[in-house]
Structures are given as structure tokens and as C-alpha cells.
Design a binder for these strands. Sequence first.
DNA 1: ATGCCGGGCGAAGCCCGA
Length: 260
Amino acid sequence: MLIATFNINGVKARLESLVSWLKDANPDVCCLQEIKSQDEAFPKQPLEDIGYNVVTHGQKGFNGVAILSKRPLEEVKRGLPGDDADVQSRYLEAVIPLKKGVVRVAAIYLPNGNPPETEKYTYKLAWMDRLCLHARGLLELEEPLVIAGDYNVIPTPDDAKRPEAWVNDALFLPRTRERFRTLVHTGFIDAVRLTHCGKGPFTFWDYQAGAWRRDDGIRIDHILLSSQAADLLVATRVDKYVRGQDKASDHVPVLVELRE
DNA sequence: ATGCCGGGCGAAGCCCGA
């Protein structure tokens, strides 16, 4: 059971390369972020044609998440609970059958939060508090749970090529990292960090200033596993090569393999 | 350098991302 997360940075602009990568990697489940599409405009058909069921939670122009799955998607829930006034599409959850039992998968696009002295950062911190509260409830189900997505959090200095460049950034400020730790300590395993020591692996390289050429990346796309999911963990992978392709997203896919 | 690149929107130039 291969589960992926990929911030696609516009699904319509990236459809061809997304389909190409899906055919190569062949994940059973793929969480997408920044689809930048309303639900009715999402290009479902090309993805259904290669074997995926598709659920989306989009909005016009920005944000938006989706889950692709070769298996049925059940108990689909759109939106992060805890703030009825929040109109941004950043959370989508579904239950997917395993050979035995199920896995619950949540696709998240956590707010960027820059610049930090504005309400954008307040919104980010509040969103993280809501995610932590919701995740705590999901953990009580005591089932395999995977929360995958663009967390917009650099958890530690090892997660950036040049951590000193990020010290005043919403992705790396102490209050951001503190909330990420709180979430993890609620009862999750950071799957990629469990399986990689030292610097990286990075999942994002800015389009600007030759960041990709200089390998000046950060690790902000994460897959958190409940203990029941972590018990099934076989391997993790970051498909870095995708960043070097023409018209690439600024993020690359991150994957976990779970045994069944 | 409150920029550099790139997508969306909508039809030029601004908003947003990280």
C-alpha cells in the first residue's frame, strides 16, 4: 500500500506531468495540495482513466486539496473542523480499505503564514491548534491514520539547507515549530524523519534565485503516522527527480509504503 | 531586493506562494 503526498501547484498547469508521475510511481493513494481549482473544474477524467477514484475540496484560484485512490474512498469529510468562518479549502479526509481493516487518510495544506506580523500568521497558528485538536480525536479511533500534506513547517535545522535563512520566516519560527512538536507528541511518527538521519531530504525548492540548482531546499511536506499506521511502515521515499523536470512544481512527491 | 519565479485570473497587472 503506497501512499503519496504531492503539492502540485496548480493541477491544470501540471496535469500532464502529474499523470506521467502517477504512471511511474503507481501509488495506491495520492494526496494533492494547491490544486488551485474549483471542484467542478478539476480534471477528474484523465485521472479516472488511469485507475483513480477522485475526491476534491477546492476553491477558485488558490489552495485546494484532493485525494486520488485506486480503492474506494469512504467517509469523505471536507474542511477542518473548529471554525465555521474559515472558507479556505485546506483539509480533506477519507477512509480507504486495506486487505484487512482500513486506513484513514487526511490530506492537508497548512497555511503558509507569511508575513509573520500579520493576521496570516495568526490564522496559521490557529489552524495548527485546530488540526491538533482534530487529530487528537482521530487518534482515539485507534486505527491506522495517515495525515499527509504540505505542512509549511520546517521542523528542525536539519530540515533546511540554510536554516539561518529561515529564522524569521513563518515556516521556521519557534511558535510554528512548537505547534508541530505538540502535534507529533500527541501521538504521531514523522515517517520520513524516522527513516532518514541528518540533513534533508528536502521536498521544496523555490523557483527563485537558483534554489534548485544549488540544492537550497527545505523539508516541509510531511507524512505523520498514528502508531497503528507506523506498525505497518515498510519504507519512505522522496521523488526528488521530479523537481528537475520541465514545468515542475516547486514541491516533489513524498511517499510511504505500508504493509498489509 | 516588500525581488528573483510561476500559477491564477482575465485579458494588464496584481495577488499569492515559501
